[in-house]
Design a binder for these strands. Structure first.
Lengths: 154, 154
DNA sequence: CTTGACTCTATAGTAACTATAGACATTACG
DNA sequence: CGTAATGTCTATAGTTACTATAGAGTCAAG
C-alpha cells in the first residue's frame, strides 16, 4: 500500500502521514525500489488510532503517550481515564468561556443596528471602553484555561 | 509613560505591546534619550481598544481593519455589525462542535472505570476503532468551522 | 512515448504570542 | 557613591499541527 492509498483509506492527507512519521507517531515504513513508502495493515491501524485520538481533541504529545501504552500495555490504565477526564474538563471550560463570550458579543451587537455614522457607532464606542461585566471583573472562572485548538469533531 | 507602566495600566505584558507595535497595530512611540519607548494616554487608549477586541475573539487582521475605521470613520459601519455577527456565528459553531465532542468523550470515558488491565481497556479499544455516530457519519454540520483559538474571555 | 498523476525531500509560512540571550539604563538601598 | 536588582533594548528561535511551495524523480494510461 502506497502513501496515497493509505491516506485515502484513513481519510487524511498524504502530507499528514509524512508529518506524523516525522513526529515519531508512525513507524518508518519499508521503502520500495523507488524509495516510495510501503505500508501494511498494521500501519493503517496505527494511523487510524492517531486520527481517532485527534478527533477526540488530543494533542500529539498525548497521542505519543497513548501509543506507547498501546505498544506496551502495562497493568493499569488509570491514567488513560484521567486523561479523558481532564479532556472533558477542558472542553467544559472552553464551552463555558465561549458561552460567556457569546453573551458579550450579543450585547455588543445590540449597540448598533447598522447604518449609523462611523464616529457615533455604538459598537466602536463599546470597543473603546466596554463595561466590565460582573463575572469578568470578579472571578476568572471562565478565563481559567489556555487558548487551544478546537473545532475537532468525531 | 514607559512601556512597563502602560502594560500595567492596560493589564497586558510588555512583550505583547512590542509585538503589537511590530505588527503595526500600535503606532511607533517617541523614544527617550536612552531609546526607551515613551507613551501618552492616546497610545494607552489604542492599546486598550486592541485588547478589548482581542477579548471579543477578534483576529489581529480584523483589529487592524477596526483600527483604521477608528482612525478614519467613514459613513457607514454596517460591516462592523457584520463582523460581530459572523463572530457570533463562529462562536455558536464552536460551542456546537465542543458539545458534540463532549458527548463523545463522555461516551469514551464510560468504557473504562479505571483499574483494568491495559490490553483490555475499553478506552484503548474504542480509540482503536470507535463507533461512528450518526451525526458524525451523515452530516458535517458540527465540523464546519476551522480550528481556532478560543479561551478568550471578557 | 508522452502526459498526467503520484511520490520524494527540504524549506517556509500560519496565529499570536512566549522564551531566550546579551547588552545597556535606571532605580533603590546602604 | 557603589552596587545590585529591576527595567528596557534588539534579535532570534520556539510553540501547535499542520499547509504550501519548489524542484526532482517515478509510475500508469493512452
Amino acid at each position: 500500500m502506497k502513501i496515497g492509498d493509505m491516506a485515502k483509506k484513513a481519510g487524511c492527507k498524504v502530507v499528514t502521514i509524512r508529518y506524523y512519521e516525522k513526529e515519531g507517531l508512525l513507524l518508518e515504513p519499508e521503502r520500495s525500489d523507488a524509495n516510495y513508502r510501503s505500508y501494511g495493515t498494521e500501519a493503517l491501524d496505527r494511523l487510524e488510532f492517531v486520527l481517532h485520538c485527534r478527533k477526540f481533541g488530543m494533542k500529539l504529545d498525548e497521542i505519543r503517550a497513548l501509543l506507547s501504552f498501546r505498544d506496551h500495555p502495562q497493568r493499569d490504565c488509570t491514567w488513560v481515564t484521567e486523561l479523558i477526564d481532564s479532556h472533558i474538563g477542558g472542553v467544559d471550560a472552553q464551552i463555558a468561556s465561549l458561552e460567556h463570550l457569546k453573551t458579550h458579543l450579543e450585547e455588543l451587537r445590540h449597540r448598533c443596528e447598522g447604518g449609523l455614522v462611523g464616529n457615533d457607532c455604538g459598537i466602536m464606542r463599546s470597543l473603546d471602553a466596554p463595561e466590565v461585566c460582573a463575572s469578568c471583573a470578579s472571578s476568572h472562572a471562565s478565563c481559567a484555561h489556555k487558548a487551544s485548538t478546537s473545532g475537532l469533531a468525531v
